[in-house]
Design a protein around this nucleic acid. Structure first.
Lengths: 180, 180
DNA sequence: AAATTCCTGTAGCAGCCGCTACAAAAATCG
DNA sequence: CGATTTTTGTAGCGGCTGCTACAGGAATTT
């Protein structure tokens, strides 16, 4: 790894921190440069442009989240969707993961406006979420497994939304029942 | 209603159109003024500031959505959460309502940053959603009714997220199963 | 040592943003 | 009609955005 690549990676690490802490909206080049300990001028020397920075940092962030989830999901698989939902909700709604989910929703908004490269990025993240849940479901029928994983992800995303608007109580309530 | 109030209301109507079509991010004072047929100068004459404009327009938008939902939800109530979920998903995922949900998610992001007045607004909207679903549920036990409504809303919000990232197929799949 | 390439600071561009000072027009009132 | 108040246009402020031209220093190569 060249010096340039090392510095690029180090900058990305700090930039990822900043994005998780402050969100996309507060991630101007100058702000990112400050937390990375450089100047906006240098950021644009290491990266092709702001989009390149953000997308690269989102990659770093996705890797981090993958590691967190992999560590936290140590238990056995289950055939019961409610069980998997409860397990994942416990992790995803925790303070450690919430910044990731907030960022994920911000990318969702950008994606919904059709803006590349965020549209592709958001789609891939959604797919990987579904795949992760599917890997936790001990269901033989593949079609049903995929559909169930989709359902669990939908509910999880909804719980995150409720948390973000300060309705943690409503989200917790939702976890206590089975239907709908 | 004075002339001033009439013009204010007319401007709000056009502004609501613009916000639904282009989202919060593309709603600068100058852009809103253009669609309203005035100048940014006049907008700030009618309103206290940008926040006042946006929050007032969100009120108009909430009223519109309420009317849409009230009209579309003509059928009988049901004790089956899956039935209510499917009914509401059919409405909320439709092209007519999607702009409202996208806006709702944008407000959610603002809310999650703790910015008033969006934090309060988002919370109230979430509560009214839950109340609406609860009113469609023919469940006697009030505690279970509230919890079930919360669960349905969570799932609905999640479906919206999946739709916004271009995973309509995943969302539709999720509606086909019961668990999780 | 000279020449070339790589790195980085300074300064600034053009374009937005929310908002406002000022003054002129228009409507209202005595 | 004149005086006062309400409404509006013009112009611009200070600040932020992503990005870039230029130049000088540092490192590397010949």
């Amino acid at each position: 790894m060249s010096v340039r690549e090392k510095r690029r990676a180090a900058a990305l690490d700090r930039i990822a921190d900043h994005m998780l802490a402050h969100g996309l909206a507060d991630s101007s080049l100058r702000a990112l440069a400050q937390t990375a300990g450089t100047s906006d001028r240098m950021l644009l020397y290491y990266f092709a442009g702001k989009d390149d920075i953000l997308v690269s940092a989102l990659g770093t962030i996705a890797t981090r989240l993958g590691a967190i989830l992999h560590t936290a999901l140590g238990g056995p698989c289950s055939a019961d969707p409610e069980k998997v939902l409860a397990d994942m909700a416990g992790i995803i709604r925790g303070a450690a993961v919430r910044p990731y989910m907030r960022l994920w929703l911000e990318v969702t908004i950008l994606s919904s406006r059709g803006e590349e490269p965020y549209r592709s990025v958001a789609g891939q993240i959604a797919d990987s979420f579904v795949a992760l849940v599917a890997s936790r479901l001990a269901i033989d029928n593949e079609t049903i497994r995929q559909a169930t994983a989709s359902r669990v992800i939908a509910t999880l995303d909804g719980l995150v939304v409720l948390d973000l608007v300060g309705r943690e109580h409503t989200a917790t309530l939702a976890l206590g029942v089975k239907g709908g």
